[in-house]
């Protein structure tokens, strides 16, 4: 059953994709610079030069999609006083799993007066795909963290339907050592039929979540609500409490979801999306 999905990591006899990227960033001469970059297996990071004082990292899975048994680990640490945006080169694809689930583990660390924007592009889960995602974040009391994650069940533009698959997502967000936000998503089996149910997706097959932990999070709430309302093909809500802002979006198509997410993120960040998003 699906329940064991995230807890177990049985040693597979099959040779599977493994990848690890660990990037830490430090402040030096008034700019955010690489402190340490470790890359292993099929995970790579590219760091294009930017004119601004923030560091942009593009994470790449050279394996070209994931399937059962694959493991990717990403760790990004924004040191004290740094500003970092990390994204992925392309949408991640989760293919039919013969055995086990694909698993992605993300660890984010935000130092004092630092800012980290974690903005991977959408994950597309294909028929038969099984995907587990874990995200752990530790933020200093005055650090800023922005996370936007989205998942699309099937290539919605082609009318594909995921009638068999699995998705489990687990977030744990701590600020100054205290757990402030957690999310646990669990979809198993006929995901298409589940997402047709009114309380789940109401027919929406593309889902996004946005979390913004920042001093100005509550002040941005009305702006976010207004922006959501400008996207009639996307149903969404926004709420702020305990020093963070949480948004949830649902749409029938990955295309409409992405357009809304780009709009919301550009408003929230006050700057264009990382270039990888525009290709």
């Amino acid at each position: 059953m699906f329940d064991g999905f995230l807890r177990s990591d049985p040693a597979s006899t099959l040779q599977r994709l493994r990848g690890r990227v660990e990037l830490t960033v430090k402040r030096e001469a008034g700019r955010s610079r690489i402190d340490r970059l470790y890359q292993e297996g099929s995970a790579k990071a590219r760091l294009p030069r930017t004119e601004s004082d923030h560091l942009e990292a593009i994470l790449i899975n050279t394996g070209g999609g994931m399937t059962g048994g694959d493991r990717l680990h990403m760790r990004v640490g924004a040191g004290d006083g740094t500003s970092v945006v990390a994204t992925s080169q392309a949408a991640e694809k989760i293919y039919r799993a013969v055995q086990g689930a694909a698993l992605m583990e993300t660890r984010l660390e935000v130092g004092a007066a630092a800012r980290l924007d974690w903005l991977p592009q959408e994950t597309i889960l294909f028929q038969g795909g099984r995907f587990g995602r874990r995200l752990e974040a530790d933020i200093a009391a005055d650090g800023t963290l922005l996370i936007a994650e989205s998942i699309v069940f099937g290539r919605t533009a082609r009318g594909e339907r995921v009638t068999e698959g699995g998705f489990a997502d687990r977030w744990r967000i701590r600020r100054a050592g205290r757990l402030i936000f957690a999310d646990a998503i669990r979809l198993d089996g006929d995901i298409d039929a589940l997402l047709d149910r009114p309380a789940l997706g109401g027919g929406g097959k593309a889902i996004a979540a946005l979390l913004y932990v920042a001093a100005d999070s509550h002040a941005r709430l009305d702006e976010m609500r207004d922006a959501i309302a400008r996207h009639p093909q996307v149903e969404g809500g926004a709420s702020a409490w305990n020093g963070f802002l949480h948004l949830r979006l649902v749409s029938r198509t990955g295309f409409a979801l992405r357009a809304a997410l780009v709009d919301l993120l550009q408003i929230l960040r006050g700057r264009p999306m990382p270039r990888a998003w525009m290709c």
Partner: peptide, 8 residues
């Protein structure tokens, strides 16, 4: 859970 629209 997966109650996206209930949460919204």
């Amino acid at each position: 859970a997966a109650m996206f629209r209930a949460d919204i």
